[in-house]
């Protein structure tokens, strides 16, 4: 009771990174609160995934294993989650801010009339005093997120309602297994008791999901192309530099919207958050919604011919110059020195 429950997402029979990242974060929150971390795993034929959840710190894994639950559908997944939360009364519930988590969590929060904060970039435990009533609260979940197009950062709390719910995007939290893992317990959920016919009002007719190929999140070095690269053809320069340096290619929303690069490469608030050890931004203007997704990178190099571009303000190295000249020079220089 009053523990932290993490909703576990699976994809093609594997655990999603975002869920393991949330378990890792939940461990540190649980330590502050002196409670346990638990996991909710829903799917079909999924018991093989349970030991991995123990490795990431789940003391109890609630398992709803049912052939009808092979693929995510809002209503049956919500029914199980709502029922479990009513029974277990977690004080905190965390979901990935994926297409699944962002579909499921609001439905659950509405049914439980509990607060939900989307796309948190940071979670913490702290006290709160209500400005109107003067009432004091101990150990609330601080849900910290950008708002207003990333121009403000808000700290949200849910003083009176439980569970305190939040979603977090993939790649925002770090993923770390326990140093000394210990086995936990399985709690089997009786799905037949919970699910009713109307939970299956939505039918999946066809699924056409590609294998995950591009993974800019895990990259140590990212070459980040912006709208200033100019065209899809010219994006070859970005890929050339990436290939030379053993890097991945990222892109701003403007570049993705213009069709220069694939969606999966988008860095920023509506894309992936990255923190590589080195990021080289080519023709990126530095809009906040983009920089919010990369400004934690260890070293930022900006190449932009506009000296006023905001990207120069967050860069460690600012090159005011034409990327069409600078990139070939970088490649040549690297090749010269690496011999």
């Amino acid at each position: 009771m009053n523990n932290i429950i993490v909703f576990i997402e699976t994809d093609g029979g594997k655990l999603c990174d975002v869920s393991l990242e949330l378990l890792t974060k939940a461990r540190s929150l649980a330590e502050c609160l002196n409670v346990d971390v638990e996991a909710l795993l829903i799917g079909s034929n999924i018991s093989g995934l349970v030991p991995e959840l123990y490795r990431y710190g789940a003391k109890v894994v609630h398992v709803a294993d049912d052939p009808r639950l092979e693929f995510f559908r809002t209503l049956p997944y919500a029914a199980i989650t709502i029922e479990l939360f009513k029974e277990q009364k977690p004080q905190i519930a965390l979901f990935g801010a994926s297409s699944i988590g962002r579909d499921l969590a609001p439905r659950v929060s509405s049914a439980l009339k509990s607060g939900l904060t989307a796309d948190c970039t940071s979670l913490d435990i702290g006290d709160h005093e209500d400005a109107r009533s003067g009432k004091k609260y101990k150990n609330l979940l601080y849900q910290i997120r950008p708002a207003f197009g990333g121009n403000i950062i808000a700290t949200i709390v849910n003083p009176e309602h439980r569970p305190q719910m939040a979603t977090v995007r993939e790649g925002v939290m770090k993923k770390e297994p326990l140093e000394k893992p210990a086995d936990g317990k399985i709690h089997q959920i009786d799905t037949a008791k919970i699910l009713i016919d109307s939970d299956f009002a939505v039918e999946i007719i066809k699924r056409d999901i590609e294998e995950k190929k591009i993974n800019i999140k895990g990259a140590q070095i990212i070459i980040d192309g912006g709208y200033g690269v100019g065209s899809r053809e010219n994006f070859k320069l970005v890929f050339d530099l990436a290939k030379t340096l053993g890097a991945e290619v990222g892109a701003s929303r403007a570049a993705v919207d213009a069709g220069f690069a694939d969606n999966a490469r988008q860095v920023g608030q509506t894309g992936v958050t990255v923190r590589p050890k080195l990021i080289i931004c080519l023709g990126v203007s530095g809009a906040i919604q983009h920089t919010a997704g990369m400004d934690q990178s260890k070293i930022i190099i900006a190449v932009n011919s506009d000296p006023e571009a905001p990207i120069h303000k967050i860069a460690d190295y600012s090159i005011i110059g034409d990327l069409n000249e600078v990139v070939p020079r970088m490649i040549a220089s690297y090749k010269k020195h690496s011999k």
């Binding site: 904060t117 403000i152 950062i153 808000a154 700290t155 003083p159």
Partner: peptide, 12 residues
């Protein structure tokens, strides 16, 4: 149920 505890403007 959710209350805004704090708002910070992002300053470059």
């Amino acid at each position: 149920p959710t209350k805004v505890k704090k708002i910070e403007n992002i300053v470059f």
